Computed example of a mutant assay.
Amino acid sequence: MAITYKKLFHLLIDREMTPAELQKEAGYSANISTRLRRDHYVSLESMEKICRVLNCKVDDIIEFIPDKEDENDG
């Protein structure tokens, strides 16, 4: 199953906040920002930091995308 953080970036736009501002306020590294942009795994600890700053739930910023194999299993 793949993951995407598109919902996070849409939320940032809605709140008129840049990814750099979020990074600074949440206190995570530039590496995490890169991982988010590339839809790579980010630790739950980092997700918690982001959710605290944005006052949101994890499912407000993450979306799971089923693999094609998973779609065929249903």
Rank of each mutant, 00 (worst) to 15 (best):
A2F: 15
I3E: 03
I3M: 06
T4K: 06
T4W: 00
T4E: 11
Y5M: 11
K7A: 05
L8D: 05
F9R: 00
D14R: 12
R15T: 00
M17H: 06
T18K: 13
P19I: 00
P19N: 10
A20E: 11
E21T: 02
L22G: 07
L22N: 08
K24Q: 04
A26T: 03
A26M: 04
G27R: 06
G27Y: 02
G27N: 02
A30N: 14
N31Y: 01
N31G: 05
T34L: 10
R35I: 00
L36K: 02
R37D: 05
R38T: 12
D39Q: 04
H40C: 11
H40M: 11
Y41F: 12
V42C: 07
S43I: 00
E45N: 09
S46W: 13
M47Y: 11
E48S: 07
E48D: 10
K49L: 14
C51F: 13
C51W: 11
V53W: 09
L54H: 08
N55S: 13
K57F: 10
K57V: 03
K57I: 02
V58S: 09
V58A: 12
V58C: 09
D59G: 03
I61R: 03
I61N: 10
I62G: 01
I65Q: 04
P66R: 05
D67T: 15
D67Y: 15
K68T: 14
E69K: 14
E69H: 01
E69F: 03
E69L: 14
D70R: 00
E71C: 10
D73K: 13
